[in-house]
Simulated scan of single mutants.
Amino acid sequence: MTPSEINSFKSYLPSIQEAFLLTQKHFIGKIKTYVYVVNNRKICSLPITFQNKHFMHLCGVKYATGARGFIKDLKRKQLNFPNCQIKCNTFDLFLVIGLVNRSLAELPLPIDS
């Protein structure tokens, strides 16, 4: 990563950490059911289980020590930026993470209800 990319990444860290905490609280280790309709007739459902390792992918980051290392360092607030490789849409994903954080914070009811 370039010094400019590192500075940009650092500016998003609080949002990323907040998103991880929300993800951990509401999704990781829980089964969420995606309900959808096929051909306007048949209602189907798909249970989805989220794991810690999926969070790194959602951030658009590749970390030299893998998803476990990324989560471990993120929790300790000690990301090793030379170990980070960003993808072409990483900073767009960071913007979305911030929007999701704000949306979840404004929900009147708990997500798990």
Rank of each mutant, 00 (worst) to 15 (best):
I28A: 11
G29Y: 04
I31A: 00
I31L: 10
K32Q: 01
K32W: 06
K32L: 03
K32H: 01
K32C: 03
K32P: 03
K32F: 00
K32Y: 00
K32G: 06
Y34H: 01
Y34V: 04
Y34S: 00
Y34Q: 06
V35S: 04
Y36L: 02
V37P: 05
V37L: 03
V38D: 01
N39V: 15
N39F: 15
N40S: 07
N40P: 04
R41M: 09
K42W: 14
K42G: 02
K42Q: 10
K42V: 09
I43W: 01
C44N: 11
S45F: 14
L46R: 14
P47R: 01
P47M: 05
I48E: 07
T49K: 12
F50S: 15
F50M: 10
F50K: 06
Q51S: 11
N52Q: 12
K53R: 15
K53L: 13
F55N: 07
F55S: 11
M56I: 05
H57R: 13
C59A: 03
G60I: 03
V61S: 07
K62P: 04
K62Y: 05
T65Q: 08
G66T: 10
G66P: 13
G66N: 12
G66E: 07
R68H: 12
R68L: 10
G69Y: 04
G69M: 09
G69D: 04
F70E: 11
F70G: 13
I71F: 08
I71P: 03
I71T: 08
I71W: 07
K72D: 14
K75P: 10
R76L: 12
K77V: 15
K77S: 15
Q78S: 12
L79C: 13
L79F: 11
N80Q: 14
N80S: 03
N80A: 13
F81V: 14
F81M: 01
P82C: 08
N83V: 02
C84G: 11
C84N: 00
Q85N: 02
Q85C: 08
I86A: 00
I86V: 01
I86S: 03
N89E: 04
T90E: 02
D92Q: 00
L93F: 08
L93Y: 02
L93S: 15
F94R: 01
F94Y: 09
L95S: 06
L95I: 11
